[in-house]
Design a protein around this nucleic acid. Structure first.
Lengths: 120, 120
DNA sequence: GGACTGTACTATTTAGATCAGTACGGTCAC
DNA sequence: GTGACCGTACTGATCTAAATAGTACAGTCC
């Protein structure tokens, strides 16, 4: 599935959460596709199942996954993200842009990247 | 100057670092303006001077401040940000846009915000 | 010289991340 | 219906990093 970076100072559960979220938003994990089970992923990464569960719980709070008792955890539909998550992202976008603006990164460089990501 | 949020789970030194960076990039702190001394800010926020120093050290690494021995710490010029910082920001921008795109936030909503921040 | 600055250490306390273990109910194939 | 999975929910121990406390030294300024 993926691997951990032990040089990364971030907590393990955050690395897993962010890694899985990335796979979902990039399409590497399709909507309604099953994620690895808590125990299986814990085994594969050689860490405690509790740590995986914590990452999964946060992804569900964000709206990126849903769980079916007894069956597993699945990637959610694109529209399913929690409003709080979207708000967080937009806030972060403004902060990011403010800093880029301060650093005199030209407007064109920013819009170019926006269109690059949106182009498909 | 500003205050701490004890509900915020982030380490204190990160809150201070981010808060000061924000003041610099928004212009609340002008280039070459003096930041509060390590001891003064520690006193004001009722925390340990070491914690302030850590925040200041990171800001200097990012290129947002420079220190003059015996005199104090000052906000840097706009162009002075470390290349590593800029790279981090651009990487984060791409990730952010990827997620917004996945959530079907319209292109127009994003570009509107870009121009809003850049407008002046 | 006295009152400030930044900076660099060591040692200690505290809090959060991580691990270990156990338990319970739902799903599914045989 | 029973065994093998699944998610979920606890308790308690351990380990690591944040934060504190204290001290010290060199530069600046009046």
């Amino acid at each position: 599935m993926f691997s951990l970076d032990h040089r990364d100072a971030r907590p393990i559960y955050e690395q897993i959460r962010d890694g899985l979220r990335r796979m979902i938003v990039t399409g590497a994990l399709a909507p309604d596709e099953k994620l690895p089970s808590v125990r299986a992923l814990a085994m594969e990464l050689a860490i405690n199942p509790n740590t995986i569960q914590r990452a999964y719980a946060e992804l569900e709070t964000e709206g990126y996954t849903y769980s079916v008792p007894g069956k597993g955890i699945f990637a959610a539909q694109r529209q399913a993200a929690a409003p709080a998550r979207l708000e967080t992202l937009l806030e972060r976008l403004t902060e990011l842009l403010t800093e880029l603006h301060f650093l005199e990164v030209p407007l064109e460089a920013v819009t170019a990247r926006v269109e690059e990501v949106y182009h498909d």
